[in-house]
């Protein structure tokens, strides 16, 4: 019984890997693109872009600052675009 359960678990692992392997990178990039848009929403006001949701996103800024450096580099900005926040 335990042997069968082990085999079933192994089969499940193989199927999951078989499902995920070809598209792991594509999905991770798609998820990152969504995150990047979210970062833009959160920091838009600080960069002079009017954001009607700024009141709600303001409190998220400290939580996302750790990811800010990688984000602005991905957007093609060598250095931080924010005067008040120099990460590099």
């Amino acid at each position: 019984m335990a042997r069968n359960a082990g085999r079933l678990a192994r089969l499940k692992t193989l199927l999951e890997e078989f499902y995920v392997t070809p598209y792991r990178g594509a999905l991770a990039r798609a998820r990152r693109d969504e995150d990047d848009i979210f970062m833009l929403f959160v920091f838009a006001e600080l960069m002079g872009v009017p954001n009607p949701a700024a009141y709600y996103t303001l409190e998220l800024q400290p939580l996302l600052l750790e990811r800010f450096h990688e984000w602005h580099r991905r957007q093609g900005l060598e250095h931080s675009p924010l005067d008040g926040f120099r990460c590099c």
Partner: peptide
Amino acid sequence: DDIDYVPTNRIVLWGHHFTA
């Protein structure tokens, strides 16, 4: 990086290569 570069079981990778 666990995105594009991930060491993968060779049977799974064979299955992926074959079916692709």
